[in-house]
Design a protein around this nucleic acid. Structure first.
Lengths: 227, 227
DNA sequence: GCAAAGCAAGAGCACTGCTCTCGAATGCGT
DNA sequence: ACGCATTCGAGAGCAGTGCTCTTGCTTTGC
């Protein structure tokens, strides 16, 4: 793709960006439910129908926002786990967890968009999975790079789980023992689940604010992995 | 409340039930997003405006469905953990987990409604919390009734967490040690988080179908609690 | 038996996502 | 430098939404 482009192409790109930007603003202030194409167009001073030259549908706009959110969260985590070169694996694990929670609390609607109920009937095109994988891969990177202490043997892996884990390990972490990989996936779910619970009010009246419980959970999962 | 009621009251009650029933049908087939008051009214052969005599708003109808879903899930779990009188604590734990997943897979939209993104701006009136508590209390009941094996001391409880856990224990499980209670909450989050991941497609391409991973997680959490 | 309360229905408002059409601006090949 | 095809913005319009208000009718309680 050449750096030199026609005025039309540049205008198109810029407008596409502006639309996403305005949509994101509305998303952040009112949530995905309330995101309205007409309101976006209104705010941008254009006809609502003109918007369809840039996004074929509301869902397509949302999908673009989903990818952006995954990417942003993934980058935040990646940056956190690599920020301190001399940091121990446990410190990097902690940093990754904290960065994830911080991002989620700063962008609750974006978090809900990617880890909450899928908004349309269910549209996760291939394009999203790469962006979606960045957070778990960043966390997994910490585990892979760490000298793992031995951990108590857990329950035996039932049924097809060893095979599933082997397939997963094949492209994500070939050197990791299957139980460790399983615990890493568990930790990822625990991370997202806990943040979701906190954000969606399921801990109100018990462990809310969840700051300390979150920190404890980070340590507990690190322990379970042998970090 | 007397068993004898005016025809009007009986009609009102019956219609309220029918509205919820039809709403639930639409919820189950298309999700909360698509639930339309007008469509419900249409299906029931009445004017949409008449519906507002029974539910003040769409959100109120949804809240009613939320309470029903919490209750149903809670009852399913309660039944599961008490079904086999002679069962061991671990077996009852397993049964509670399985029942939760089974219900969620049979009622994915209902599950998303209660444990996904809050649909309105955020309306969790007091009425919902009692119903919402049934599932975690049912699972906690298994832990309380069990003779717990000693478990490795986990990370120290940071900051205000001991106090939060003490408050929680005060009305939910006074006899449980704080770390065990914390692990129980973690297990609850793990349960819901894992089901959410499975249902919302976050495990596609890795550990989906999640049946075996789910079973393994149930064992792992039971281990961590000393069940 | 009658006033009061509860009720259903219709019209209507302000929205929504989305489509189609039509003139204007733009880019490319000649 | 011109002409044509593509791209674009805007407007009108469709079908649908949640919700309100008014208008009559039915049931209830005194």
């Amino acid at each position: 793709m050449p750096a030199i482009r026609t005025a039309r192409e540049r205008a198109r790109e810029e407008l596409t960006r502006e639309i996403k930007q305005e949509a994101r603003r509305q998303l952040a202030s009112a949530g995905a439910q309330q995101l309205s194409l007409r309101a976006v167009a209104r705010e941008l001073g254009m006809a609502s129908s003109a918007l369809y030259r840039y996004f074929a549908s509301r869902d397509e706009l949302l999908t673009a926002l989903i990818i952006d959110a995954y990417t942003e969260l993934g980058e935040a985590a990646e940056h956190a786990v690599t920020a301190e070169p001399g940091a121990s694996a446990r410190e990097r694990w902690r940093a990754g967890w904290q960065a994830t929670r911080d991002w989620a609390r700063a962008n609750p609607h974006e978090f809900a968009l990617i880890y909450g109920t899928p908004v349309p009937g269910y549209a996760a095109p291939e394009t999203t999975v790469e962006a979606a994988a960045r957070l778990p891969l960043a966390l997994l990177g910490v585990v892979r790079a760490a000298p793992l202490r031995p951990t108590p043997a857990g329950p035996t892996l039932p049924g097809a789980l060893p095979e599933q884990l082997a397939n997963l390990a094949a492209f994500a972490a070939p050197e990791l023992p299957a139980p460790t990989l399983a615990r890493a996936v568990s930790a990822w779910i625990q991370l997202i689940g806990l943040i979701g619970f906190e954000l969606h009010g399921h801990l109100v009246g018990s462990l809310d604010p969840a700051t300390d419980f979150f920190a404890w959970t980070a340590e507990e999962t690190a322990d379970s992995l042998g970090l």
